[in-house]
Structure formats: C-alpha cells, structure tokens
Design a protein around this nucleic acid. Structure first.
Lengths: 346, 346
DNA sequence: CCGCGCGGACAGAGCGCTCTCCGGGCGGGG
DNA sequence: CCCCGCCCGGAGAGCGCTCTGTCCGCGCGG
C-alpha cells in the first residue's frame, strides 16, 4: 500500500474530471452535473480520499478549530500546571462546561484544543497558538478574577469569549449568570420555609461569583428584617464546606437554614449537620448552588439554585462562532437567570 | 493596522535576507552567521511575525497535534454524547489521565484535541480527523472493553496508543496496570491485619480491570485457605459502592475486611459501614484502589492500591511520540506495577 | 440562420512554508 | 600560487487545496 495519501489530483484523474470539479463536489459548492457528481463520489470512495486540512486551511485561512483555555492568574511551573489540570478536572463544574461546549461544537464537526494557562509562558503560548492560525478563536474559563489572559487576547485582537465577566473591563464577549438573583432566590426560599436563623457558607470572596451570591443572599435577608447573617467563607470544595459548617454550628447551634454557595459545600454541610444530630430539612434546611451532579448523587437530594452551565457554555461557543465568522463584531454579554430547584433538603 | 499577518517574505525583506535564511533561524537549522541571526531576530520582533502553521504542516506533513479520544462502545446521539462527556469528566480518574498527558505534551508545546467517540459516526470522525492530517496520532481512553475504535485506528494504520489492553487483540501499543497484582496486594494486606472474613466490592465484570482485580484478590485468598469470598459487583461509582456495601453487610454482618475495586466505592463502603455502627478500621478494614484524590479527601484516609495514572498517561504520550516519529514501529505494551499505600482505613 | 446567454467544466494562480540544490567566497594544503 | 573543499546564503520547486477567470457547448430568440 502506498503510504502517500491520495490527493484531489488523484481523485480527479480517477474520475476523469478536473481538480476544481472534485473540489466543488467535496465542498458541495455550485451546480455540478449529478452524473459527474456521482462519478466523483465513486472515485473518492475508491481512492479513500480525505482532504488535507493543512492545504485547505492555508487557503481558507481558517483552522476550523477552537481553543478551550482553562486559565488561572498564577505563574506556575510545567509540573504545577499538570497539577492545575488535575484540580480543574476534579471540579464537576468544568465537566459541565466541556459538555456544553462539545454539545455545540460536535454537530459542527469542530473539536476543541485543550489548553491550560497558569503561567506567563503558557499565556503567551495561547496567544501564539491563535496567531499561528492553529485555532480560530478561544473559549476562556478563568479560575481567577484577575486573569491576565483576556486582556492579552483582546490586545492581539483575537476572537475570544469568556465565561464570567472579567474583573477589569476587557473588550471581549462573555457569558455570565445573575449570581445576585441566585442568592436572592435562596434567601426567599429559606424565608418562605419559615427559617428565622439562616446562615451561609459563601464562596471565596476573591471570586466575583462568590461575592455576588453572598450579596444577593444578604441583601434579601436584610430587607426582610434580618441584617446580621452568620457567614463562613468556603473555597467551593467539599472539605471547605465541612469545615465551614462545623464552625457555623459551633458558633450558632440554633441555625435553622443554610445557603451554601455551591452544591459541593452544601453536601459537606449536610454531612456535618447529620453528624451533629440535625435532620435536614426538618431541623436545618440546606440550599445549594449550581444544580450539579452532586446535588442528586446522594440523599437528601439538594434544593439548589440552578446554574445552566451547559447552556451557558454552548452560548459561549455560539458567540465565538459569530465573532470568528464576522457575524458579530462588537463584544456582547449574555447573562443567564438562575432558577430555584426545590428538592428534599429545603 | 494591516489585518494581514506578516509572512516569512515580509520578514526577509525587512531583514534584507532571503526567505530561506529566515526560515533557518526560525527553526534553528544549520549554521547561520550570528550577525545575520540577530538581524533576522530583530526583523521578526518588529514585524510581529508568527509562522503560519497550515503552511508549515502542508510541507512537513505534520500537525504537531495529537487527539485525546475518550471512547465508549455505544452508539449515542449528539445529545447523549454531551452527557457522556459530562460523565467522563465527573470521574477523577480522567482528570489524572489528562494531567499526565498534558504533563508530557506541554513542555513539547503540543496540545491535545479533545474528542468523544460514543457513536459509530463519531468514531468515523476520529479516523477522518487523523487521516486529514489534523492530528498526528491518537491517545485513546476507552470506557468499555469492546470499544471498536482501536481496531478502526489500527486498520487505517494510524498512530495510536491505548490506555489498557483492548479486549480483542489489536496491533496497537498500550499502557496498562498489573491489576491482578493489585488485588493480591489488597488481599495480603487484609490478611496481614488479621482479617478472617474479608469481602470485596468488585468493579464491573464487563471491564477487564474489574475482573483482574477481583481475580487477584480471590486467588490470593483461596491460596491462603479462604476459598469463598463474598462479592458484590459495583460500577466504579460512589452510589454503587453504597449499594454494594449495604448488600454485603445484610448478608454477611460479620465481615471484617473489604476490598473495593476503586476509591470511590471504598468511600461509599466507609459511609455505609459507619452508618451501621462499624468503626473503620477497628471493626472493618477497608482497602480501596487507585489512590485518587478522594482517597484523602475525607477521614478516614483510605489505605489503597495506588495506580500511577499520571505516569501511565505520560507514558502513553511518550509512546505515541515515538510511533509518530518512527522511532518505534512495532506495537508495545508497558505494564505498570501497583503499589500498596497504607493509610488509616486498613 | 446566426448570435447571445448561460450552465458547467477547466486551467492556473497563488496561500506561506520547507528544503534541496547551487553558487560564491574564503581558507588551507600541496 | 593555485586548487579543492567547505561553509553559508539564495533561488526555486513544490506541498494540496481553493477560487477566479475563462472557455466551450447548447438552447433559444430575433
């Protein structure tokens, strides 16, 4: 067997037509006589032809590929980057992002290139990658508010869409959630259930989402006559939820409702509560955030504020698509509304 | 600003040399007079030149990209594929695989393209992707023993390396773990601790790893005078571990040792055990498998059989590299040894 | 009956890069 | 002193594809 892949030329010869004609039927462009079309199709079948992407990209100036960048704000070594990758993947949230993106991209036959940018060098590499035309644009998920990558991308005038509004304004489109409304939803639900001594395990305050959820929760309670809510800061991990709830319970044993800023921490809270002999939701109601898989992984199923991550991620991909194809030129923001999902825990 | 990216030609003109010379300094090939080298370097700086990958790939016939394929054996719709993606990412195991692969690839400036192949169409797409030269080879992680993808890849003579030995022999390199030895390690440890009534929560028997771990465990026990070990089959998920342990306890309340075929199920076992008033490890010793992040996520920290997933994944990438560059032509297998990590649970 | 219009195929010019082959200049050995 | 060989830069031929401009032939209207 010839190790040399068949080219357009080969197919053309086989079919007895010109290169251009084969190209047209491959790309479904313009009118080609159905008989000839069939002829070409058979020749393609016989030769096992697969168009060379490099050659096509060279002339179309399009890679039909997007970069999926997970970035932080740090400056880690290569080794630490691998650890960063592992950490990112440990979060169920990221899986949903990928699922949403893949859900949009797959039907269009584009596959994301996975990149981690947790150092100055790797951030530069992302920019170079795009400038070399290896990907047409970037989908950026920052794990940190002051990630420098978005600014770098904007400066190089490279198409990119962010997950969450960047801390510093950057002329790039992004997709976000009305976190504040989510906090409000949780507060209202707890109040409606009759909770009088609610507390919250908030997310890291260095993250905008953490701040906003807390603010929404606190504001709503304040407006309803509860100005002082016990707050324990967590880190969006199960451990931190465990620790936060333990602390909360020690200082406020009479707490009767808890809003955790994500489901993982809510799960932790439930465990600690149960270990301390509190029934959920009878003694203490618990509301989570995200509606991730962990919400229903165990009993009690969590009442939670749903964040439509998959839809948001798909929207990112859609926006990027528009930017790449020039259908959209100005940066846009799309903000999704959270939704309360009532289950067992509250 | 010109939207047109600068080309080699532009840099050459700017530096007053020929295209070939610029190419040589860019690629660090052959001796170029240091003075001219510097001249060129400055011209590159001034023009902001970034070599066009498509053009380079066209002539080098290399994409400098590898596909990271997560494949199943099913035939799912696009929508179900997204769910598949989400499920895959939920598993901490996969995060470690990615970390290992990225750890090897990053220093070489190659980034993986993420692909999910859970339907005949998407499997064909993977093959086409490679045949089009968009990626030089594939790293395949199958979630199912009789995944048809490896055979497809082998048939098309495309460079590929698998994680775990395929059910049907396929002329492809793979990386695997001596699962049987892992089972043996667990059995020996339990025995050494003085367990007389051990049981096991095995993995899905449709998966070779599940079978092997069970066989190793069972054989060792049989050889030491314990021919009948209670077995409950799980599915490598927390839930299944919960259910399996519950069943095991109902039928064999006097069990004093449990080997779970992965850490997630071991975690579930610990919970059920505790809920039933059994202390771990005093009343029942628990040994997990993998040494994933969940092993030490909570107390008691799991005694477990370590599977060096990151190293294995890195080795996959290394093997693929060799296959791509022709340094290695025949399929090889690299089997890693498991290692017992003694912590609190046994 | 001739010409014009149009559908449909073809020829050829690149896209930006790599790499082989050449040629010129310089240094050392005979 | 001359010649040979070596070192280094340049010229040019593609890599496989797309796409514009062109041409051919056929049908129809004047």
């Amino acid at each position: 067997m010839s190790r040399q892949a068949p080219t357009l030329e080969d197919v053309a010869r086989e079919a007895g037509v010109s290169r251009a004609t084969v190209s047209r039927v491959v790309n479904g462009v313009r009118n080609v006589d159905p008989a000839i079309q069939e002829l070409v199709r058979q020749a393609i079948e016989r030769t096992g032809y697969a168009p060379n992407r490099a050659a096509r990209s060279l002339v179309t100036r399009r890679a039909e590929t997007v970069a999926l960048v997970v970035s932080g704000a740090g400056d880690a070594s290569d080794e630490a980057q691998a650890a960063f990758a592992a950490r990112v993947f440990a979060d169920p949230f990221f899986g949903r992002v990928v699922a949403g993106i893949v859900g949009y991209l797959r039907p269009r036959s584009v596959h994301p290139v996975l990149m981690f940018a947790e150092s100055a060098a790797s951030r530069r590499e992302v920019v170079t990658y795009l400038r070399q035309g290896r990907a047409d644009g970037a989908l950026v998920v920052s794990s940190h508010a002051d990630d420098p990558l978005p600014a770098l991308l904007a400066e190089a005038r490279l198409p990119a869409v962010l997950f969450a509004r960047p801390a510093r304004a950057v002329p790039l489109s992004y997709v976000d959630l009305a976190h504040r409304d989510g906090g409000r939803l949780a507060a209202e639900h707890l109040l409606a259930r009759g909770c009088r001594r609610p507390a919250t395990i908030c997310g890291p305050l260095a993250v905008a989402a953490g701040q906003e959820r807390l603010a929404g929760f606190r504001d709503t309670l304040a407006r309803r006559g509860l100005p002082c809510v016990p707050v324990a800061e967590g880190g969006f991990t199960l451990d931190s939820g465990l620790a936060a709830m333990t602390g909360l319970l020690a200082e406020h044993p009479d707490v009767d409702g808890v809003f955790a800023a994500n489901d993982l921490m809510a799960r932790g809270a439930c465990q600690v509560l149960r270990d301390h002999g509190r029934r959920v939701p009878q003694d203490v109601a618990v509301v989570g955030f995200d509606d991730s898989t962990v919400a229903v992984a165990r009993r009690p199923h969590l009442t939670t504020v749903r964040q439509p991550v998959e839809d948001m991620a798909a929207e990112m991909a859609r926006l990027l698509d528009e930017h790449i194809h020039g259908t959209r030129t100005r940066p846009t923001s799309v903000v999704f509304d959270p939704e309360l999902v009532v289950r067992e825990s509250a």
